[in-house]
Write a protein that binds this DNA or RNA. Sequence first.
DNA 1: AATCTTATGTATTTTATTATACATAATTGG
DNA 2: CCAATTATGTATAATAAAATACATAAGATT
Lengths: 402, 402
Amino acid sequence: MKKPNPDFDRTMIDGAGSLLSLIASGTATSRAELLDASGLSRATVTQRLNGLLASGLVCETQDTLPSGGRPTRLLAINAASGFVIVANIGETHIHLAAMDLQPAVLAETTLPFSITSGPDDTLTQISDAIAALAVEARKTNRLFVGIGLSLPAPVDFKRGCVVGPSVLPGWDEFDIIGWLKNRFAVPVYVENDVNLMTICEHKRRFPAIDDMVFVKIGTGIGSGMIAGGRLFRGAQGAAGDIGHIQFLSDDAPLCRCGKFGCIEARAAGWAIARDLSARGFRAETARDVIDLVDQRKPEALMLLRAAGRTIGEVVSDVVSILNPSLIVIGGTLARGGDLLLSGIRELVYQRCLPLATRNLSIVLSTAQEDSAMFGAAYLILDDLFGAAKIDQLLERYCNRAD
Amino acid sequence: MKKPNPDFDRTMIDGAGSLLSLIASGTATSRAELLDASGLSRATVTQRLNGLLASGLVCETQDTLPSGGRPTRLLAINAASGFVIVANIGETHIHLAAMDLQPAVLAETTLPFSITSGPDDTLTQISDAIAALAVEARKTNRLFVGIGLSLPAPVDFKRGCVVGPSVLPGWDEFDIIGWLKNRFAVPVYVENDVNLMTICEHKRRFPAIDDMVFVKIGTGIGSGMIAGGRLFRGAQGAAGDIGHIQFLSDDAPLCRCGKFGCIEARAAGWAIARDLSARGFRAETARDVIDLVDQRKPEALMLLRAAGRTIGEVVSDVVSILNPSLIVIGGTLARGGDLLLSGIRELVYQRCLPLATRNLSIVLSTAQEDSAMFGAAYLILDDLFGAAKIDQLLERYCNRAD
DNA sequence: AATCTTATGTATTTTATTATACATAATTGG
DNA sequence: CCAATTATGTATAATAAAATACATAAGATT
């Protein structure tokens, strides 16, 4: 494999990190904007930008901006210059993908997975798959920039471990970042799947919105929050864990957490499936519920609508507390569409103060199955191309080019 | 009045803003730390720091740090070099204070106030009082750095106005910042009183805690949130407005907002006073309630305990959603101490997942009446001495020194 | 008091960046 | 095709900051 540019010398991109960050974040997409945003002089910007262009990390796009005179050439991160590998641990499978810096999928794999597997076995399997994907991705002379892992459990993002008892027995406090860094010399990120879906939804559809909440209603119920434009994780990474908010009533059902009356036990996929089973239907998962809804079974329609109202109670609490400008409803049950949404809207507009709902939208997610994986890619790229870490990344690009 | 230092020349502090910010934020308190934190060279730091010292803005403290050799001289913002004026609009009075940069009170005034006064009249009164305080404070040759206004209503911080219907009729959308800037050529900040109390509690007692919630339980109920070390305001500045979160029951009382079952109608000062009145006591305000509690009237004790549990229901929702590491309970009813606290703790530990309560503390506020005013001062100083605005502030110091 | 240690200031050289001015490039509109 | 217009690169002088090395300060230790 040839190097992308043999005339490349590492001194050419000394100090170019800030420019790279500006381009990556979309703050500056042209030379003129770069001059403005960086505060550097024309000569310096030209010199450093040439370094970045020679390194292959940055490229000029096809498009130009007409300006009345010579058109402005637009700059962008060269998506082909690197790749990330993300893995999403689901309830029955692990999906892995190598993605370029767009991020767009380059290659994928799926592994079988049992929730009872310990972290060591699972991470060994994942590592092998990562290694295979990396070999593939490297064939096009890309730099391996990072690994992202999505888990269906509360995650302490900074420490990179699952915290608290969860659906993943044996993972509590296990040092995932340490384990993976031992095998791969790249930055490793671990995050909860709902948080990653939140990031994906925010980056893709609502990048301009600073305060939003994503609610995932699938087999379980969870949420992620964007506060001031950034994911809000709370003290232990448990922020947004709304599934086990309770409200009591005469018929409060038993939740899988051991308490009575949690909204999960009232409105999550498994709870609706339970209620449908009691009425003689065959239903176990959120998907079964949606299948029955699609068949227009009246009982399923009724239960989903009721679930919407139940969830609406909690969403209205969230709105009162956080005052977001957008609520996005996702997860398998969100395929129920307006059936679910109307109940949520009903309760929110009934319960919240006018001030909080004045500019509030409540919409359905358009995210696909793979949104957690894209979220992981966004998370990695935003962090690595951010001002704080960009110089380390540049360093790694240089070492490769040697 | 003499200038603090006649040998002062504005070119001496060119570029010294970043150093000033580092000192103000406490990031660097010595020359060595300044060198480290700024990344500048020894010569540059010496030169700019000398400028700051000559300007009177920065001073060396009495204390030095023993180091084995020559002791390290510590640096600090010279609290005497400037002043802010803050005003707190309460239900019956407006308190004003001039404060130095510590912040510590230099002079105070109180004005009578009626909630029905319109913004124009009120601001005229406030302005006159500010002008008088400013004359006083300027006698010691200080620079007037900013004005802060605390309001008992939801505030859109960026726009500087009250939003939504509130206890302040006629103030909705009134441009307070514009009005005051018209009269005083200094930065003006407007914020909700509970948010300011939150800032005060955070800065004074828990500066190291990144995620906390302050709950004010007085005549009404409100809260403020620190998320990631910063005040979280939400989309319209209504974040933390938890007083009107409802939960239904057979005996849901009517709230002053017009809905049934809000926690305010169940557990705020006015609601307890209402219940005590129904039992033949004379009680109207939160203070009346606390007086009866102090007299150990069983009915008052019982109602306060019950209020604790009611508030605990909402606080447990807040904990589930935000995962803070600290809850601070303040406001007049917080004088009820453990009587109130135990009910809150009981519900939170009962309802929240162990992960969320593992490292959670729930404590009483120690804040005094004036905490909103100190909060306002902290808000002003943190913003003006922050990296983003420090150069403007320096500019103003220079113009004065001319 | 002499010595050690760490803090702090300063002079000098070297390097990096800016400012300025100008040259060149790539369009649009006539 | 030409002029107008805006984008972009580059040479040069001027400036700011860093690096280096050394000098001095102020306490602790002996």
